[in-house]
Structure formats: C-alpha cells, structure tokens
Computed example of a mutant assay.
Amino acid sequence: MTFSVQVKVMPLKELLDPQGKAVMGGLGNLGLQAIQDVRIGKNITLQVEAASADEAKSIAEEAAKKLLANPVMEQYEININ
C-alpha cells in the first residue's frame, strides 16, 4: 500500500530565522503591520510503500532523522494522509 506522508521541517524556536526576518521586513514595507512573526520552513511530501500507516511513519521518521532535517537547527513533524 502507498501512503502519502507530509514532513514539515521548521527551524528550532530558539534559533534566529534569517529568511523569516527578511520576509517580516518585506511585509512591514507592504504595510502589513498586523503580522507579528514569520518562520520559514520546508514541507516535504513522500510517497511511501509500506504495509501499514505505522510502518510508513517509521520510514519517514528515519528519512527525516538521516537526511531531511538537521536536528541541531530544525525540528520536524510527520503526518500521514
């Protein structure tokens, strides 16, 4: 069975997000003062062949730990669709 797995990778909250700060400045220049903060991350979609949703999540977890996210600077969240 093939599962669609979403891996959301975001910078750790404790770290500065230079892309987010740049976008925040641009939004301010456009007059969008109500936006208080911006964080930029990655959304990765995987098509995983597995016997169950739990197995697909486990495979995605391994991919995230080994390649998709840098645990020193990023956190990730996995969702099965």
Rank of each mutant, 00 (worst) to 15 (best):
K65F: 01
S52V: 08
A50M: 03
Q75H: 07
A69V: 04
L27S: 12
N79C: 02
G31P: 12
V7W: 06
A56K: 06
N70W: 06
I35W: 04
P11K: 09
K65P: 00
F3V: 08
L46M: 11
Q6L: 15
I40E: 14
T45K: 13
M73S: 08
I78Y: 01
F3Q: 13
L68R: 04
S52Q: 08
E74M: 06
Q75L: 02
E62Y: 01
I59L: 08
E74T: 07
I35K: 07
Q19Y: 01
A60I: 03
I40M: 15
A60R: 03
E55S: 07
A69K: 02
Q75M: 07
I78C: 06
V7M: 09
S58P: 00
E61K: 11
V5Y: 05
A56P: 04
A56C: 03
K57Y: 00
G20E: 01
K42Q: 14
A34P: 00
S4A: 15
Q75T: 15
A63L: 08
G31Y: 08
I40N: 10
Q75E: 15
A22Y: 01
Q36D: 14
V7Y: 06
V9W: 02
N29Y: 05
G26A: 15
G25Y: 09
N70S: 07
G25F: 13
A34L: 08
S52P: 00
I59V: 13
N70E: 06
D17F: 04
D54N: 12
A64M: 03
K42E: 11
L67Y: 02
A60Y: 00
L46S: 10
V23H: 10
A34F: 04
M24D: 11
N81P: 01
V72Y: 01
P18M: 09
A63H: 00
T45C: 05
E77G: 03
M24G: 07
A63C: 08
G20A: 06
P18D: 12
I40H: 07
V38Q: 15
T45G: 06
L30W: 03
S4T: 15
A69I: 06
L30F: 13
L27W: 11
